[in-house]
Design a protein around this nucleic acid. Structure first.
Length: 556
RNA sequence: AGCCCGAUGGUGUAAUGGUAGCACAAGUGAUUUUGGUUCACUUUGUUGGGGUUCGAGUCCCUAUCGGGCUGCCA
């Protein structure tokens, strides 16, 4: 069976076959103005993945040409996230800001060729002269300055002789081009602002279009993958390489994806952080890599997700359920099983000898013996989950009800004999049961079957914990597609975080390893939270629930 | 409105002129000491109209629909 190749692999195949390039060298070029999110993961997997597949290298490059937004903190977090995802750029951490001098020289070269000029128009005038989607632009009155004057003016721009915004350097291309990007795009602007790396050395900064392709060229990048919105920039990318006569990488665009019930805009994610609507960039509900990590996602599951969504040129809407499925699939064979009761309901075993307790053996994984076993304490007073008992059950309810026998996992069969209610509310606060001593371990010698198996913890041995349940951040599939007067903030899910206190977990979890994702049997996958927790406190984040094919007939 | 890009089940993605396949979702059944897992089965698709061809999801034309583009952001 032949494995299918996506359009970028095919493009690289033919570039190699036609000897356009004799090797592959890619780059991942984030701007250090925010944290990386799941959308970036796709690009990272593609950029590093293509390099790996074709035996080449992939650089990590900070696309840092805007001093107003960038920060060293982001540079560090970006590196941390990419390493976590499982990729390595060796010693090739690059910065567009390291190329400023070379970029400046190239700008001079373009001026000498008559391909760039200094424009005195202000921002408003330039915008007006650019024309519109249907009308051609108008040439600037400064467009035909002499090479000497342009050289002099541009050098003085760098020297700081002009005010911010007073002049710009523009490429001299075609004000009538149907591609707006070719209507004499701005190459340099004057901006007196300290840059996080170059400090006050520069007061002019190159624009993306004059920095990105040239940075690729300097680094010898062969294939420069970027998202679809840069498609219209490719003619400009190519124009600069051609006019400069420098090594000419190939830009290939692919579609970004949207995740249902989420947003991917860095600007909007920043807004959630700044307005305190989430607990930072790494809030477990955020689609950021740091958020997913804290939530309990594994790098393997994120990479698998990126594989599964594929690479194409059409807009992708990816179901959040796919992401969750990737995690479940990874954790199914990786997560040790334990028992934890999130909403405790007291169970008393009436016929269990007073004061007796025993240790029962439980498998740490249902099918993989290499996980070994552990001992779980049992006694006459237990907790089960409130969901697992109903006094008046609907049909097909397999859990504990008056008269219905169930199995306590790895323990005994029990039968409900009585309930104790809160006299004030009528709520069941305790269930009285009997157990069958012959069913120790969970099997009955007479071969009788039970429909349900419940997880439980022994009350005197239980450890208290807090559990944080996360749900989708937004209530609608596409929070960015809002009608009049609505902001994406209007669709924030007020139930996206539910904090459960007083949960009861089995004793081994007191020393839960924060690097291990546990499966709480019948409940979901959980990871120990450490970032927002006081010393010694036990808190778990839910990474994902387990699939549940049972649902109550009518749930209020 | 001009330019660019795209269109295959509910979602995503294959089929590169020759049997429309896979994953997720949904449903059914079996297995099960997790209503989990696993296994089997099932439902659902080539945007419309022309053309080329023995043969078109694939190539051409056209219509329609969707996305992107009018920052001194990237």
């Amino acid at each position: 069976m032949k494995e299918s190749r996506h359009f970028i692999q095919q493009a690289i195949d033919s570039d190699l076959a036609e000897k356009r390039f004799d090797h592959v060298h890619t780059r991942f070029p984030p701007e250090p103005n925010g944290y990386l999110h799941i959308g970036h993961a796709k690009a990272i997997c593609l950029d590093f993945g293509m390099a790996r597949e074709f035996g080449g290298l992939c650089n990590l490059r900070m696309d840092d040409t805007n001093p107003a937004k960038e920060d060293m903190h982001y540079v560090e977090m970006i590196q941390k996230d990419i390493r976590w995802l499982g990729f390595d750029w060796g010693d090739r951490l690059c910065f567009a800001s390291d190329y400023y001098e070379q970029l400046y020289d190239w700008a001079l070269a373009l001026i000498r060729k008559g391909k760039a000029y200094v424009d005195d128009l202000n921002a408003e005038e330039i915008r007006r002269n650019r024309g519109s989607l249907t009308e051609p632009g108008v040439e600037s009155p400064y467009r035909n300055r002499s090479v000497e004057e342009n050289l002099d003016l541009f050098q003085r721009m760098r020297a700081g002789e002009f005010k911010d915004g007073e002049k710009v350097l523009r490429a001299r291309i075609d004000m009538a081009s149907p591609n707006l990007n070719l209507r004499d795009p701005i190459m340099y602007r004057i901006q007196r602002m300290a840059h996080y790396r170059t400090g006050d050395k520069w007061c002019i900064y190159p624009m993306y279009d004059f920095a990105h392709g040239q940075s690729d060229s300097i680094e010898g990048i062969t294939h420069s993958m970027c998202s679809l919105e840069f498609e219209d920039h490719r003619p400009l990318y190519d124009w600069f390489c051609r006019e400069l006569g420098i090594f000419h990488p190939r830009q290939i665009e692919f579609a970004r994806f949207n995740l249902t019930y989420s947003i991917m805009s860095k600007r909007k994610l920043l807004q959630l952080v700044e307005e305190g609507r989430v607990d930072g960039w790494d809030d477990p509900r955020m689609p950021t890599l740091s958020g997913l990590r804290r939530r309990g996602y594994t790098p393997e599951s994120v990479r698998d997700f990126c594989d599964r969504i594929g690479v194409s040129k059409r807009p992708q809407w990816i179901d959040m359920a796919l992401l969750e499925n990737c995690l479940r699939q990874d954790l199914e064979h990786k997560a040790p099983r334990v028992m934890a009761v999130l909403r405790p309901l007291k169970v008393t075993i009436r016929n269990y000898p007073q004061g007796q307790e025993e240790m029962l053996v439980a498998n740490n994984h249902p099918t993989d013996p290499s996980f070994g076993t552990r001992m779980v304490p049992f006694s006459g007073t237990l907790f089960i989950d409130q969901e697992d008992f109903m006094e008046h059950p609907p049909k097909k309810y397999f859990r504990l009800t008056p008269g219905q026998e169930v199995r306590l996992r790895y323990a005994y069969f029990i039968k409900c004999e009585d309930v104790i209610k809160d006299p004030a509310t009528g709520e069941v606060i305790e269930v009285i049961c009997t157990y069958d001593p012959m069913t120790k371990g969970g099997d009955s010698p007479d071969g009788r079957k039970v429909k349900g198996t419940l997880h439980w913890v022994s009350a005197p041995h239980a450890v208290d914990a807090e559990v944080r349940l996360y749900d989708r951040l937004f209530t609608v599939e596409d929070p960015e597609d809002h009608g009049d007067g609505h902001s994406f903030l209007d669709f924030l899910n007020s139930q996206s975080l539910e904090v459960l206190k007083g949960c009861k977990v089995e004793p081994v979890l007191a020393s839960a390893d924060p690097d291990v994702r546990y499966q709480f049997e019948r409940v979901g996958y959980f990871v120990r939270e450490t970032r927002t927790v006081a010393d010694g406190e036990l808190v778990f984040n839910r990474a994902a629930s387990l699939k549940d094919s049972w649902s109550p007939p009518s749930k209020a």
